[in-house]
């Protein structure tokens, strides 16, 4: 029977390969992992004993997760424009909206970001910071006034679309969200570029 030590080594190795192949499609990643498992199983069946040394040699021969990822084309394909993409999404809309659109196209055609990141970058917010700036122009609360001007007393009561504090919180969040998403996209890119 296989010892738990060697099983653990294999599990660790496969886990590291899985991480290295993180941004392949799941079906491609699973296919490669499945083949590696088959390979290891096959090799182990030829082992004289299930020794740690033999297993380590086998894993060395298989190659490092980085080598396997490179063979899978996970090379950092960072194009020169990619560092700009998060900021184009954030501010690009102020340039006749075109900047944001270009950023969006770059985002989706890139292999640096995963689907999750691409969705985040697209949905928060379409137009980046332009949307919160436009919302700023909208009245958060309206006032209605009663009374007669001739009587001198005018009674004004604010009818907030939203209660004041909640409106402020939503306003801040609306501003912060796209900035945080841009920072996130930038960090993902930096991590991939290593």
């Amino acid at each position: 029977m296989h010892s738990s030590k060697t099983d653990q080594l294999i599990a660790d190795y496969l886990h590291r390969v899985r991480l290295a192949l993180e941004h392949l499609t799941p079906s491609r990643r699973d296919e490669i992992i499945e083949d590696l498992i088959q390979h290891i199983t096959e090799a182990r069946s030829h082992f004289s004993s299930d020794s740690e040394a033999e297993l380590r040699t086998l894993l060395d021969h298989l190659g490092s997760p980085a080598e396997i990822a490179e063979a899978a084309g996970v090379r950092p394909h960072t194009r020169k424009i990619e560092p700009w993409v998060p900021w184009m999404l954030l501010f690009g809309a102020f340039v006749f909206f075109v900047g944001w659109l270009i950023g969006l196209i770059m985002l989706w055609s890139s292999r640096t970001w995963r689907l999750r990141d691409k969705l985040l970058g697209t949905l928060i917010w379409p137009g980046g910071l332009l949307l919160p700036f436009m919302l700023l122009g909208l009245p958060v609360s309206s006032q209605s006034c009663e009374g007669t001007s001739s009587g001198g007393s005018i009674h004004c009561t604010p009818h907030g679309v939203l209660p004041e504090p909640l409106g402020a919180v939503i306003g801040i969040v609306t501003f912060l969200a796209p900035i945080l998403v841009a920072v996130h996209l930038d960090r993902v890119r930096r991590r991939r570029a290593v």
């Binding site: 490669i32 390979h39 080598e67 063979a71 899978a72």
Partner: peptide
């Protein structure tokens, strides 16, 4: 061919640097 045999053959012939890199290649 069986992946394992292909990997061994090409690795022993030094066509691939390490056996594991054959699998992404086969997948492609």
């Amino acid at each position: 061919g069986y992946g394992f045999d292909l990997a061994r053959t090409l690795s022993e012939a030094h066509i691939v640097a390490s056996e594991g890199t054959i699998y992404p290649l086969l997948s492609r």
